[in-house]
């Protein structure tokens, strides 16, 4: 199935990556060549095959619900692109 420009724009919306028309056309070309190559998987009949979701093949361990890092707010906020010393700051969300 071919991926058209409309689909590229839709995916970019879902992925929260803005693309201009020129970029979208380049992506359309790239994605089509990649998916054409991926289509060879359809040669295989996998109706009776169980999907492999994890190599570990065991249920993941649960860990104790314990606080390991405390009072690191300032350390964490040091990496934020915008903050007011107490919180992360983002563009206004609620009108």
């Amino acid at each position: 199935m071919a991926i058209d420009l409309k689909t590229v724009k839709h995916i970019s919306k879902l992925a929260r990556i803005s693309v201009n028309d020129e970029k979208a056309r380049k992506l359309e070309k790239d994605l089509n060549s990649i998916f054409k190559w991926i289509e060879q998987l359809n040669e295989l009949n996998t109706d009776k095959v169980e999907p492999l979701t994890s190599i570990a093949e065991t249920t993941l361990r649960l860990r104790e619900d314990k606080i390991l890092s405390e009072n690191i707010r300032d350390e964490i906020l040091n990496n934020s692109p915008k903050d007011n010393k107490d919180y992360f700051v983002v563009p206004k969300v609620v009108e």
Binding site: L41, E50, P51
Partner: peptide, 14 residues
């Protein structure tokens, strides 16, 4: 069509 299919082929490879 894609993700589940790939997980199944991954099983065949393993």
């Amino acid at each position: 069509a894609y993700y589940l299919k790939a997980q199944k082929v991954r099983k065949l490879i393993k």
